[in-house]
């Protein structure tokens, strides 16, 4: 039996933070293909939702000039992002419950690397899921007018949104006491896009609800991405979306780190 001695922790601490994050991202990426729940949330549910709105409800919803599928795809993508977030909450929570975080803490591992692993893997899931949504969209009649710049802007905005939602999901996973609780706590997150402009134009909603639906941050993302896809004027939606979701990231990331350390130490 050989004796293995780890290299002395020389080198800048940023190097080791990166090393730990890379190892833990790899871990979470392997989980994706092996977790039926994550695959289901990534592919099956959003595709079903898209087909349902395209063919079941779409005909009865009036969206003015644009066809319903061109209207709804941006919104369905925001819903797919929040669906996927549920899996992140559950994964973070079960890590904290199953003793593996305890082991990491007894090792020379940066605690934040565990969360970075989950969030980066979540982003990979979001990107795949978004790509699949757009692909299926094309099959069922989605015809965007966007040029290269608009595509980049739309995808960048979705990535910002997905990053923020992943960190929120991580916080919910830390706060939840049980895996079932994590799943329950992230339900409002899944529901929020529905109370907005994601799937239907809010113009027919009652006044109070309509004010909320038009001004909540998921609607800004859906409105901006839809406008970019369809070549319509973006208006205030894009910068409102950026300010909202960048602001949420600034608040939630440090909060997640602090809550994680406290929970892991408890």
């Amino acid at each position: 039996m050989t004796t293995v001695t780890p290299p002395a922790p020389a080198g800048p601490s940023a190097y080791w933070a990166l090393n730990d994050s890379r190892a833990l991202i790899g871990r979470c990426l392997r989980h994706i293909a092996r977790s039926p729940e994550q695959l289901m949330l990534m592919f099956f549910l959003p595709i079903m939702l898209l087909l349902m709105f395209r063919y079941l409800f779409g005909g009865a919803i009036s969206t003015g000039g644009v066809s319903y599928v061109n209207y709804v795809l941006a919104g369905i993508i925001t819903v797919a992002v929040t669906f996927n977030a549920t899996a992140t909450s559950v994964a973070v929570c079960s890590d904290l419950q199953e003793g593996i975080v305890e082991r990491f803490r007894s090792m020379p591992v940066r605690g934040s690397a565990v969360l970075v692993g989950h969030v980066v893997a979540a982003l990979v899931r979001h990107v795949i899921s978004i790509a699949v949504m757009i692909g299926v969209g094309f099959l069922v009649g989605f015809r965007p007018q966007a040029g290269f710049g608009q595509w980049c802007a739309a995808l960048g905005l979705l990535l910002l949104f997905a990053t923020a939602v992943s960190w929120i999901a991580a916080v919910l996973g830390i706060v939840a006491k049980t895996v079932e609780g994590a799943s329950g706590l992230s339900m409002p997150l899944v529901f929020i896009p529905y109370v907005g402009s994601a799937l239907v134009p809010p113009s027919t909603m009652p006044d109070g609800l309509r004010a909320f639906a038009e001004n909540q941050p998921v609607s800004h993302v859906a409105d901006a991405v839809r406008a970019l896809f369809t070549g319509a004027p973006v208006g205030d939606a894009a910068w409102l979306a950026v300010v909202w979701w960048a602001g949420i990231i600034v608040v939630v990331v440090p909060l997640a780190g602090r809550l994680f350390r406290r929970r892991a130490a408890g």
């Binding site: 780890p6 890379r22 833990l24 871990r27 990491f104 090792m107």
Partner: peptide, 10 residues
């Protein structure tokens, strides 16, 4: 392998 990497092995 994961734990080895986290223990800072190459």
């Amino acid at each position: 392998v994961l734990m080895g990497r986290l223990f800072r092995l190459r």
